[in-house]
Structures are given as structure tokens and as C-alpha cells.
């Protein structure tokens, strides 16, 4: 396996991102493009903005760099990274879903779907205790449902 090989990704705004191949093949869509030999110059990703793409690359890098071991510390580190990763505003989260769905990164999709579901039900287990006191979950629940509603319909 050559670690030195790099892949160029061109996004929606025409910006280019140079990433190591090991990182770039995390998304299945890109892996398939490389396998099919469509990646000789650069890979166009017209559906993804630079803000989202850099976030996706950051996530792929972290997951590639973290050794795939049973080590507790590494696992906990990755978990807290993922936890912070999805702490984004709703717009970013929904853009991420669209990008992930297009790039086909299953692991990250799972995480974000769960995050949106938690927004709809109004709470994550970590927040539950706090939510019991503050009545904010009603609001967060309402916002979650409405945003998803508008995203699911062509107005």
C-alpha cells in the first residue's frame, strides 16, 4: 500500500483539496471512482461545499489515523471526537447528511441520523438529566421536527 499517493478533490465552489489516498477512500463513492479509474486528474464533487468537504476530510483523517485497536483510550478519543463533530448547527448537520449520503460514508451517516433523531425526540442520554430541569427540550424537539419537515418537502 502506498501512503504517499494523493488524490485531488474538487468541490462545488471549484476549490481543490489534496488528500492522501488512504483518507480519500473512506467514502465509498470516492473509492469506487478510484477503482474505476475515474480519478486520474481530480475527482469532482459538485454537491459538496468547501465547508462541508473540509469537515468530512477532517473526520476521515481522524478515523484513518486512529489505530483500529481495542485500546480503550483510542476508542474513547474517537468517541469524544465524534461527539464534538456532530455538535454543529442544524444547517451544517443537514448539509452533512446530504454530503454523506452522496459520498456514502456509512459510519458517519449512522451517527448523524441518530443525532437528528435525538433532536426530534428532544434529548440525548447525556442531556436527559439536565433537560429534566430545564424545559428546553420542548423547543429543541420542535425545531428538530420543523427543520426536518421543510427538508423533506419541496415547497
Amino acid at each position: 500500500m502506498s501512503y504517499s499517493k494523493t488524490i485531488v478533490l474538487t468541490n462545488y465552489d471549484g476549490e481543490t483539496f489534496v488528500v492522501d489516498e488512504v483518507v480519500a477512500v473512506e467514502p465509498q463513492t470516492i473509492e469506487h471512482m478510484i477503482e474505476d479509474g475515474c480519478a486520474n486528474t481530480s475527482i469532482p464533487l459538485p454537491n459538496v461545499t468547501s465547508k462541508i468537504l473540509s469537515k468530512v476530510i477532517e473526520h476521515c483523517k481522524k478515523h484513518v489515523e486512529t489505530p483500529n485497536s481495542n485500546e480503550k483510550a483510542a476508542k474513547a478519543d474517537l468517541k469524544s471526537f465524534d461527539f464534538d463533530f456532530v455538535k454543529a448547527d442544524q444547517g451544517t448537520l443537514f448539509d452533512l447528511i446530504l454530503a454523506m449520503n452522496y459520498l456514502n460514508i456509512k459510519e458517519l451517516l449512522d451517527l448523524i441520523y441518530q443525532t437528528v433523531a435525538d433532536m426530534i425526540k428532544g434529548k440525548t442520554p447525556e442531556e436527559e438529566e439536565e433537560m429534566r430541569r430545564v424545559n428546553a427540550w420542548v423547543f429543541s424537539c420542535f425545531v428538530g421536527v420543523t427543520c426536518l419537515y421543510f427538508k423533506s418537502k419541496k415547497m
Binding site: 443537514f94 449520503n101 441520523y113 426530534i120 427538508k151 423533506s152 418537502k153 419541496k154
Partner: peptide
């Protein structure tokens, strides 16, 4: 807009 598949995945969670 989200395709139905995305909505399904979210509702299922």
C-alpha cells in the same frame, strides 16, 4: 431536499 431514504433512516432511529 432530502430524499425519502434519509427521512426513513432518521425516523427509524
Amino acid at each position: 431536499y432530502f430524499v425519502d431514504e434519509i427521512i426513513l433512516e432518521i425516523l427509524a432511529r
